[in-house]
């Protein structure tokens, strides 16, 4: 009888231990799963925040209103000064500090002005700025019609402003 009780007691203890062990293992697995989940979530948010910063590139409206490029006549909408853009393009090529400064504003992008009409004899495209990431994973391109003003001939030209964003 005693032996039987002892056997039953042992069996009950074993059952309790087994249940507790199952609960223990379950929660350990839950914890591991949850830690991995939160880790992925955190990495996702951080990556998104990083991407938001890196993807930040200038938009058309911002570019045409920057004093470095815009026409002196404030009333002219979407107008770039031909001599300003030509000078900017030439000056930035020879100045590393200037490239660093403008890369904070323009990000990874290529900004080009294509002169359409009247067709110029030379320099039909003016590359204002170009900076590419080491590895391009995606790119988007926008182009918009603009005016460019020649301060010497006092004439307006029709052009296309092309902005290519890289990420």
């Amino acid at each position: 009888m005693k032996k039987m009780f002892k056997k039953i007691g042992k069996k009950a203890d074993f059952k309790t231990m087994e249940t507790t062990l199952i609960i223990f293992v379950f929660f350990v697995m839950l914890m591991i799963g949850f830690i991995s989940y939160t880790q992925f979530q955190r990495e996702g948010i951080e990556a998104q925040a990083r991407r938001n910063i890196e993807l930040r590139a200038i938009d058309v409206a911002e570019l045409t209103s920057r004093p470095e490029f815009r026409c002196n006549d404030y009333s002219a909408q979407n107008c770039l000064d031909l001599y300003k853009i030509q000078s900017f393009s030439k000056t930035i090529k020879n100045n590393d500090e200037m490239i660093i400064h403008y890369s904070e504003i323009f990000g990874f992008s290529n900004i080009t002005v294509k002169r359409i009409y009247p067709t110029p004899q030379q320099q039909s495209s003016i590359v204002l700025y170009e900076k590419k990431p080491n590895k391009i994973t995606a790119k988007r391109k926008y182009s918009t019609p603009i005016n460019i003003y020649d301060a010497v001939s006092r004439q307006y030209e029709f052009a296309l402003l092309e902005i290519e964003y890289y990420s």
Partner: peptide, 13 residues
């Protein structure tokens, strides 16, 4: 930088 651009611009003009 802006003055460098303007210097180049005035020279070209």
């Amino acid at each position: 930088y802006f003055l460098s651009i303007l210097e180049e611009r005035t020279n070209n003009i």
